[in-house]
Nucleic acid binder design. Sequence first.
DNA 1: AGCCTCATGTAAGTCGTTACATGATTGT
DNA 2: ACAATCATGTAACGACTTACATGAGGCT
Lengths: 188, 188
Amino acid sequence: MSLPHAILTALLEKPSSGLSLTRRFDRSIGYFWSATHQQIYRELGKLEQAGFIRALPSDQPSRGQKKEFEVLPAGRTELTRWASGEQDSKPIRDALLLRMRASAVVGRAGLDEELRRHLAQHRGQLAEYQEIEGRDFGAAADPQDRLRRLVLRAGIGLETFWVQWLEEALAEVTDMDAAEGAGGGSGG
Amino acid sequence: MSLPHAILTALLEKPSSGLSLTRRFDRSIGYFWSATHQQIYRELGKLEQAGFIRALPSDQPSRGQKKEFEVLPAGRTELTRWASGEQDSKPIRDALLLRMRASAVVGRAGLDEELRRHLAQHRGQLAEYQEIEGRDFGAAADPQDRLRRLVLRAGIGLETFWVQWLEEALAEVTDMDAAEGAGGGSGG
DNA sequence: AGCCTCATGTAAGTCGTTACATGATTGT
DNA sequence: ACAATCATGTAACGACTTACATGAGGCT
């Protein structure tokens, strides 16, 4: 149950409409908590009903009209409560690792292309993070920026790990293919 | 849509009943794709109906009786198809990072205890992985073991990253607390 | 009028989580 | 008989995904 708190955080950083929230979930916030516009609109409705946020009164509430939300005191209280509690991290859930394990059973046809594709994607993401770090965080001073930089450095560390691991995996798979000749898969 | 394929992989490695599958999803397979017994039973029903698996005929199909499943040729074909296709990895979804970002807005009360707690958990998981690597993978020879070892090394790499990052984050937060005096949070 | 974009929303279905129900086997 | 454990399920709900619907404003 983290989406409402992600939205509260985003709205405290800056009051926004549903669509501009959606765009922020495609960038900064979305780097560690993604959400579609359907999820966001539904959750905005719930948060408004719960008294955690409200629509800014300047906007008329008709369909197709922009509607901006801000966080109410009760919403800030709820976010504080949630942020200071305990919550275990979820176990890893990664389809690529699952597919590698499946490849060990049914053969690894197409595996190396897939590894290359993921490698390119993670390199791209890493470059994007590094560019943000260079642009937005020179010599971080205030606590807010230091915390946000820590979060960004988690993204950088994770992408760095994936790039290294994919390079290792690619070398290993290439070596396995060479050792087995032109045959390809090991399935059967 | 990866759970059916996780189950097909597990059943190809070794035909099993629902409960023994559940136990394997708490260990080896579960290290990168977790599932509860309710998910597994539901999915076994679907897979059987789709003609991908069948119950071993020796077992009588009454409630409370063990029922073992094996993969049919159609199931193997489906798993091969899935494993050789393209599939982008999902973006990161990590509640701890979200909570750090929230802490940047509402204050970081309790944050350092939470970081310490996660650090201990990741250290424990890392030790478990390393023990498995030392026990099950001496000098990996056949392709199956090499692929499985690669998967395990991904787990080791990820946990290593988290341990390092949490140590860095803990040092940073401690320093921030010291710089601000005994006050505590930066919220408001 | 027709089309595109911005913006908000509905509907249907799958996946995942939590709680509970039922039957079989084993030990006392 | 009773309890504990093994084993297979049902039910209900919430989270997430995908496709579609509706309305406003600007442009040609």
